[in-house]
């Protein structure tokens, strides 16, 4: 296990334990969460709680980046926010960090919650990803991270 400092987009950072151990995505389940327009979690389902390792109380009100794994390039999340802020659906493969330092891969789809024409938040649904796609993303994200650090 190693401690890694994770820098978030809002200039805050956090030291988190990181383990090289994957937790498989639960068969047939969907991980569902909702956030406000700033990205703070307002709702999460049981699968989200189980896979993240956090309690519901620890999740509600926290920024969604609480799950950010240091292997994920910032550009991936930049693309996500640029897309959903235009009320357009975003999808992509994401490596998430659990509270215990282990990780899990998801295929995430994020949509804007629009009520009476007004953006009120976002809903994110994560499902079991293809291993082929994960392997492609591992290489891609390594390259992107190296470019961000150079």
């Amino acid at each position: 296990m190693s401690k890694v400092t994770i820098n978030y987009y809002d200039k805050t950072s956090e030291d988190r334990e990181v383990l090289d151990e994957e937790v498989p995505f639960p068969e047939g389940k969907l991980i569902v969460s909702r956030t406000d327009v700033e990205g703070n979690i307002t709702h999460c389902n049981q699968a989200f709680i189980e896979m993240s390792g956090f309690t519901e109380n620890e999740l509600i009100g926290r920024p969604h980046y609480i799950l950010r794994h240091p292997d994920m390039p910032a550009a991936a999340f930049g693309d996500l926010w640029n897309t959903i802020n235009t009320k357009t659906k975003w999808s992509g493969y994401v490596k998430n960090l659990r509270k215990d330092g282990k990780f899990y891969w998801v295929y995430a789809v994020v949509v804007a919650n629009v009520r009476e024409g007004k953006l009120v938040g976002f809903a994110s649904v994560r499902r079991k990803p293809s291993r082929t796609k994960i392997n492609e993303c591992i290489d891609l994200y390594k390259t992107m991270l190296a470019e961000e650090k150079s």
Partner: peptide, 16 residues
């Protein structure tokens, strides 16, 4: 109505 709207948002994530 919000329950229904949220379910519709979720269904929307299923459609590519």
């Amino acid at each position: 109505q919000e329950d229904a709207e949220f379910m519709i948002d979720l269904m929307d994530t299923f459609v590519s």
